[in-house]
Each structure stands twice: as C-alpha cells, then as structure tokens.
Amino acid sequence: MIEVEHLSKYYGNFMAIEDISFKVEKGEILGFLGPNGAGKTTTMRILTGYMPPTSGTARIAGYDIFFDSLKARREIGYLPESNPLYGDMSVRALLEFFGKLRGLDKKYLKRRISEVIEKMRLEEYAETDINKMSKGFRQRVGVAQAILHEPAVLILDEPTIGIDPVQVVETRQIIKELGKEHTIILSTHILPEVSMVCQKVIIVNEGHLIAADRPENLSIGISGQDKIKAVVRGPMREVAAALRDLNGVETVDYESTGVDGTARFNVSARINRDIREDLSKLIVNRGWGLLEMQPVGLSLEDVFVKLTTKEEI
C-alpha cells in the first residue's frame, strides 16, 4: 500500500534523511520511531506531497507521490505534527471545506460529516469554533479531518503529543480501531505506544533507517540472547560454575539477595535455545533450591536506546 524507495532529502547541505526504504502492507499499522530530529516529520511531509524528496521515490496506493501527486494525495489522510486547523471555523465548516477540496460530492460529504462527527464524538461541538476547543478535542477534529474522505492511507505525525493521559489512551484506542479500515503510518517517540498499537516498527536515527521489524522480533534481534533471571538457594560460586557448564549458556553473573544463602543469577543463553528446563533440572539434581525463575526479554525501550545511542558499550 505504501512503498518507499531510497528516499533522501537534503536542506541545502544539511542531510535530513538518507536512503530510507520501507513497505507497509494493506491494513498494517506501522510505527515510525525515532528521537526528535531524526527525520520522521521530513519523511511524512514527503509522503503527503508537502515537499518533494531530493532523490528516491514513493508510491501510495500505487500512485507515485511526485508524478501522480494529486491522485496520491486523494488517497491520504494526514494529521500533521502540531495538528494545525483553521481556528476561526466551526468543526462542521472545516469538514465541509476539506471535503470539498478533496472532491467529495455534496450528498456523500454530508453523510460523511455526520459519520465522522459521531465517530469522534464531537456532536456537542459541531458548531463550535475550533479555537475555543481544548487540545484533546482539537485532536479529535484533526483525526476527523484526516479520515473524512475515507482515505486508503492514514499518516499521523505524533498524534498523542501534548494531550492529557486519558486522551492519550483514547487516541490510541481510536488509532487501533482505524487500523481495521486503513493502512496507517504513525510516528512517535514514545515507545510503549508502538508495542501497544503497531504490528510493525521502523526506527530512524539521524536520518538513517536503522531497524525494521515486528516489535517483538526487534527486541530479540538486537540482543541476540535470551536472558533468564533465577533466584537459587545454595553456594553461590558452585552454582555459578555449574550454570556456566550448562549447554547453551554464555554468561552468568550473580549477586547475593541479602537473604541467607540465596543469590540472584542472571543467565544469558544463545538465542532460540530454551534452557529453562535444563537449568531447573540441574539445580534440583544438585540439591539446591530453585526459588524463582523468570525469562527477561529486552524491552523495546532497551532496543531503542541501544540502537540510537552511538557509544559502543
């Protein structure tokens, strides 16, 4: 549905993005993740036809964003970064305006306006001027505007920024809901949002694409290891030595828990090799006590920090 190929954008000599390629299939929600200034907004502005790329191409629903710009734009619903709206218009007037610009015929537009007003629960505010509304409600108007013409693709730039926590939860729910009918690109620098909402994630940093995968694969892929945390009663050093000898184990470190004779062990094993059973058998056979055992996946946050931090550890 969205195909991006080798997209680059330079502002003068300043490189905003370089050689970004990715694909979003129909019905997918793609999380576009990166720290501030990574090039997320630039990429989205190129996709929506606001500015052309320096090189590279992209297609939205099969239409080239440069050569078939108007057709491509018809397929896109866009919520820009700071959700700009005409403050002196009422919600209804604004929707009418954009509906007409997007070429919807009168009857259909009228029906769609009442549909999106209902969907975004804006009934009470339909005739209110937008600059009299709170940020959260404005956000709903922004989304209403974006989905008005039933676009195949929705591009949402930081949709949950600057609204209160309750509304954030609500907005995420709405996006999930929208994912059933639209293909969505969602940019954010909030990690949990991605694991909550998206089926696929790409991470950009300083204009470069540095990872693209499913959120859960990403956390394994980056560490290359499975980690297990275990609390064992027994002589620390002996236990550690025995664990190191276990097949598949790579590193073991430990510390006393403070409770007499018990210690906490962090065991890393090669990926895709479940050592939990072997580990528990070993400890029981040696007559030690296995008090606790817990697999530890790398959180998306760890992945993000690892990928976007330059220093080698």
Partner: peptide
C-alpha cells in the same frame, strides 16, 4: 501550519 493541510489536499 495550516498551509501544510492545504497543500497536501488534492
């Protein structure tokens, strides 16, 4: 910033 909405309309 509304120019962005206007110019990304068809």
């Amino acid at each position: 910033g509304t120019l962005e909405l206007l110019l990304t309309s068809p």
